[in-house]
Design a protein around this nucleic acid. Structure first.
Lengths: 143, 143
DNA sequence: GTTTTTATTGCAAACGATTTGCAATTGCAT
DNA sequence: ATGCAATTGCAAATCGTTTGCAATAAAAAC
């Protein structure tokens, strides 16, 4: 079990390679994504983007997120409660611990758990395509 | 790791005790719930209920599910894709393996994984309030 | 640098799942 | 039976997200 590492992907390069136009709204949204380390939802990204260029629409945020998701550049998470939240897809797989009071997300990874999941699926006659492990918790008060 | 057990809750008794009226729509929905062993969504329950009494509305299905959920009699699961799915809350906790081709749900439980989750949360300074572990897989083809 | 081509945009409307306000109905305690 | 609050069905509202469309702007072609 350990916390995660770093990142600094060049989305524009990736997008160009994918034959996609680098527009002003996209530039803004991409910068927001690279500069952020939390797990914002579309509305938060939209607001941060609006601050830079108030003409950017929520639709464009959604469209851009979908585009990046399809390219595998970001991950979309449907944690409990309203909106989907996004994060950059920097190689390493991890699961999430969500602070139910603040909404904060802490990433973690456990090889042991992954192994056990595989074992279980195998025993049931399945291959895991993907999985979802989310812990919803509350900060422990010092005793 | 093991599969789960049985059930046969008397919802009507529980409801009466909770001071709730046993109406015709509720009777029908409750019977459907006790008779089913899968993880139906509201629309499926609605259709099964309609077959018995075509005047039952989808709203009532939703309202009844919420009622039962608040009583702790059923669990609501937001698996990937559209609608929430429900299952009777028969004591034992378990997680789910979802067949991505058929939508079938297989229940499983692993003490080892639960322990590891606790460990991880503790190490991060959290108490787990609840968690969500879902494996999305595909039936292994015999090799 | 200008024109052309076509992807991308913003907007408003559509979407699907779920919830809700309301007036009509119904359990059920009397 | 009677009365009244709980429950219903319906239609409309909600929320997050997607979509059609005409207008706009990348970037390709000149």
């Amino acid at each position: 079990m350990n916390q995660h590492a770093s990142h600094k992907p060049d989305y524009e390069k990736e997008l160009r390679r994918a034959g996609v136009r680098i527009t002003r709204p996209r530039k803004v949204i991409l910068r927001i994504l690279t500069e952020t380390d939390d797990h914002p939802d579309a509305m938060e990204i939209f607001q941060r983007a609006s601050a830079v260029d108030s003409s950017i629409s929520l639709s464009t945020v959604y469209r851009t997120m979908k585009l990046l998701e399809e390219m595998g550049a970001i991950h979309r998470h449907a944690f409990e409660g309203g909106r989907a939240r996004f994060e950059q897809a920097d190689g390493d797989h991890h699961d999430h611990l969500i602070d139910i009071d603040t909404g904060d997300v802490i990433e973690f990874h456990s090889n042991r758990i992954e192994e056990l999941q595989e074992e279980i699926a195998r025993a049931l006659g399945y291959d895991i395509v993907h999985h979802r492990l989310e812990l919803y918790g509350r900060k422990r008060r010092r005793t």
